[in-house]
Design a protein around this nucleic acid. Sequence first.
DNA 1: CGACGTGTTGATTCCTGTCAATACTCGTGG
DNA 2: CCACGAGTATTGACAGGAATCAACACGTCG
Lengths: 247, 247
Amino acid sequence: MAFQDPSLAHEACGSCPIRARAVCARCDEDELGRLERIKSYRSYAAGQTIVSAGERMEFVGSVVSGVAALSHTMEDGRRQMVGLLLPSDFAGRPGRSRAAYDVIAIADLVLCCFRRRAFEDLLAATPNLARRLLDMALDELDAAREWHLLLGRKTAREKVASLLRIIARRGGGAAGPGRPATTIDLPLTREQMADYLALTLETVSRQITGLRRDRLIAVTGRRGVTVLDMAGLAQAAGEEREGGYPV
Amino acid sequence: MAFQDPSLAHEACGSCPIRARAVCARCDEDELGRLERIKSYRSYAAGQTIVSAGERMEFVGSVVSGVAALSHTMEDGRRQMVGLLLPSDFAGRPGRSRAAYDVIAIADLVLCCFRRRAFEDLLAATPNLARRLLDMALDELDAAREWHLLLGRKTAREKVASLLRIIARRGGGAAGPGRPATTIDLPLTREQMADYLALTLETVSRQITGLRRDRLIAVTGRRGVTVLDMAGLAQAAGEEREGGYPV
DNA sequence: CGACGTGTTGATTCCTGTCAATACTCGTGG
DNA sequence: CCACGAGTATTGACAGGAATCAACACGTCG
């Protein structure tokens, strides 16, 4: 069960950590006020299910902190994670009242929720909100298509290396061309990595061992990973370009 | 090279076959008029490359007829189709001037193109356009995530059966619960199916043979496929539900 | 210290990819 | 109308990578 977090219940949007990147990023003070009136915070512990596929979901919202996963489960138990929600990412879909996937908190999670119907009304009346949501959806779509290549054509080693690079980039923060070693704190267990990469947890483990043996990474404990050779990891990931295309 | 198709150059939006489902679906007469002023048609022959990844693309647009594919190619030649554009689907991304993927005409194609900058301006000023594009992007995102499950967790047989079902549903048209046999005209070669499903063309061929042997489909010539047993095909596709969740 | 969840490693199997040969389609031209 | 040929599709033999099944180790917490 989700519970209202009293410490966050009246947090002002102005000092919100995800203000600059969330769905509200383009909103002005006035629009923000309207959002504030329909928002509430919900907290979930790691492992909690937020909604299951097919259930009604009467809110949409942004991840303030923590990590959530979207995943599909087939009748026979096969599972595929189809998305990872990090802070500022948006959960739920305007115009649809039932969840298309299971949404699970992977790390302790705080969601900034908006009542769905009220949000939809606001969306129709607020171009800044709609435009931001469009840009976010298009970014997600690009990321999802990028993932197709990984799922369809990359080897197990390339998949694991790719995931480590993605996490290193988004979580590492301080990683730059001048910093050869980046330490990251994996938000995922081996099983969750396997769900995301469409591998088994054994294969993930073997590939991590392989990357460690090749001195591309160092592992400390279950969660700590230090990237020793970012260029080598990029090569192991089968990445063609470092940065993508210029705009 | 694309060429302007004189027969379509002045087609009125009112009688456009994709009027009801394309990005302009929500636009009123006035808005349609503004779109009409910045639009032009382009035709491409099957096999033609519309843009390559990284190239500038000075227009966005809707598929009027035909089929196009979005695909990624890795340096070593591995390829993955990441999207299929059918009539009414939208190509290109507002806010980005370079293509993220190769866009290739798979069947003779007609595009209704809008100059990119002009379209972006119109998008900012036309909530009906923005909202429709948002809905389309969210639909695409759902479809892309559905595809993750297929790419990551389905067997070769399930992949091929899934694709046939998708094409049967979108292309067959007349297929209903009362019609047990549906004939479809595959818009894709075996190789293209393989690119889309992340298989090899040999494996696709073997699976089609297997489905044929099991009397789920019949094959006539290179492109003709008749679905003999839709329920059996659904089962072979590993689909859990027939229709998805209610709204 | 002991136990359970998590992670690692090993042996084996099986699906799909690879390489290779053959058959089929369909358009072209004799 | 049929023969030809290039592209496309099917089929076969074999190899390889990841899944599966099965122990075992680690480490975190009671």
